[in-house]
Amino acid sequence: MILFTRQQELKNGLTMKFTIVEEYCKGCGYCITICPKNVLKESSHLNSKGYVIPEILNKEECINCKKCELICPEMAITIQKEEIEA
């Protein structure tokens, strides 16, 4: 198995795509607290139930640890690799 470091991945043109199912989010903020790189923050955007949903600050900082994905009680967050558009 070849493990790429985050730096190598960035060189290879990979970045992380943070998707959240807004309707499932209850705004508990666990993902924001758990993130070791402080990539996430509360957005100014509310979902239809009135919860404050998180948003990604700068995706280049994301190290793909998936802590936010694991901690999410609603299984609303998905982190996927995506190609940086040139």
Binding site: Y24, K26, P73, E74, M75
Partner: peptide
Amino acid sequence: LLPTIFCPGCGNGQVLNYVIR
């Protein structure tokens, strides 16, 4: 049945998440 009936910040959903994985 989603979203779940649990309150914001409840640990039940997290356990569900772990069990599924």
